[in-house]
């Protein structure tokens, strides 16, 4: 008779467990319980996410993650980084290995829907281009027919490349490699005539990985729109809100002229907008479900969007990227935060 009891019990466990949902809106609770935000970032991309010579993660994507940590815990250091290949990134997010994915990822319709992701606001407006050796004498991407092009697999880049060559009736020989470092190495070894990726990434490779940056040029054609945005899983709205508004806070901070240097003085500001933003007048933090000082902590510890940009990819970095589309909306760019009220 014991066997029967056991069998019944086993069946009950299997059936019972099957009807229980695995998790529901649990990301925020899990992050709070853990005491740190786990972010999936690029394995090593100068300007966006890379460990510096002391092993500290730096870059624009890294700072996005730190902003969320500052909002949630009042401490930008409460963030852990998981380096991910382009292929592994969505699985890592879907499976719950990471809480958010600030990993120079292009926001597309399919990824937003079929991959089960939600995208936060774009943190870097990019486009796809080509890097070629100067001695090849190529002046335009239209001259690349028959060229061998190195590309990282699992990226929108791979699809845009095929589309662009098809649309312009050019003959394409792609070499697709999984890891970004290997793709770069193959290009530098002369396996390919051209390397294609987001222009910011090409600038990073040119400045950082080539023996002599002057030997390589980025072709003028920008063949795609690449809005790089952090992603979170579907179905966890409060967590999504916190990520979204942490990013908006960096933009709004720049619009207000708040920097990590002057934000302490701004606490005494008489401007009601700034008082509300910094939590001197409470309300916004409670609405978001975080500390009232959340935006203050972001600006104080991480900086406003302009500071983050300049430090990592702009004028204070090796990349020297112009603000371009990534300027504030008041200065002709696309960085625009909805009102903080």
């Amino acid at each position: 008779m014991r066997a029967f009891v056991l069998a019944t019990a086993a069946a009950a466990i299997a059936l019972g467990a099957a009807t229980t949902p695995a998790q529901a809106g649990a990301t925020l609770d899990a992050v709070k319980a853990r005491g740190e935000v786990v972010c999936g970032v690029n394995t090593s991309l100068y300007g966006f996410s890379y460990p510096d010579d002391k092993g500290v993660w730096r870059g624009l994507d890294v700072d996005t993650c730190r902003a969320v940590a500052a909002a949630l815990f009042g401490n930008a250091q409460k963030a852990r980084f998981v380096p991910l290949s382009a292929q592994a990134r969505f699985t890592a997010l879907q499976s719950g290995e990471i809480d958010m994915l600030p990993r120079n990822t292009t926001w597309t319709l399919t990824r937003d829907t079929a991959n089960g992701l939600n995208f936060a606001p774009t943190t870097y407006y990019d486009g796809q281009g080509f890097l070629v050796a100067k001695k090849l004498g190529v002046k335009s991407a239209k001259e690349l027919s028959g060229a061998t092009v190195c590309v990282q697999t699992g990226t929108t880049t791979e699809l845009n490349l095929a589309d662009y060559f098809r649309a312009n009736k050019l003959d394409l020989k792609p070499v697709t490699i999984e890891k970004y470092e290997e793709v770069t190495a193959a290009y530098l070894a002369g396996r390919c005539d051209a390397l294609t990726s987001d222009i910011s990434q090409l600038a990073s490779i040119r400045a950082n990985d080539t023996p002599n940056p002057a030997d390589h040029v980025i072709l003028p054609e920008v063949i795609s729109k690449e809005p790089l945005a952090p992603a979170v899983r579907h179905g966890d709205d409060q967590w999504y809100d916190i990520v979204v508004w942490s990013i908006f806070a960096t933009m709004q901070g720049e619009e207000f002229g708040l920097t990590s240097a002057n934000v302490d003085q701004a606490l005494n500001s008489s401007d009601p907008n700034i008082k509300r933003f910094l939590g001197v007048t409470p309300g916004l933090g409670a609405a978001l479900g975080v500390d009232e000082k959340w935006a203050y902590n972001i600006i104080k510890q991480v900086g406003n969007y302009g500071e983050i940009f300049d430090r990592n990819v702009g004028k204070d970095s090796k990349l020297q990227m112009a603000r371009g589309l990534n300027a504030e909306w008041t200065k002709g760019g696309l960085m625009y935060s909805p009102p903080f009220r």
């Binding site: 079929a114 070499v175 697709t176």
Partner: peptide
């Protein structure tokens, strides 16, 4: 092969997984 860019089954399937999200 996927590590050195030879398009074997795993390499192609990985790309397909990534583009469709159907791991």
């Amino acid at each position: 092969a996927v590590a050195i860019g030879f398009p074997d089954l795993v390499s192609v399937a990985n790309t397909a997984i990534n583009q469709t999200g159907q791991a």
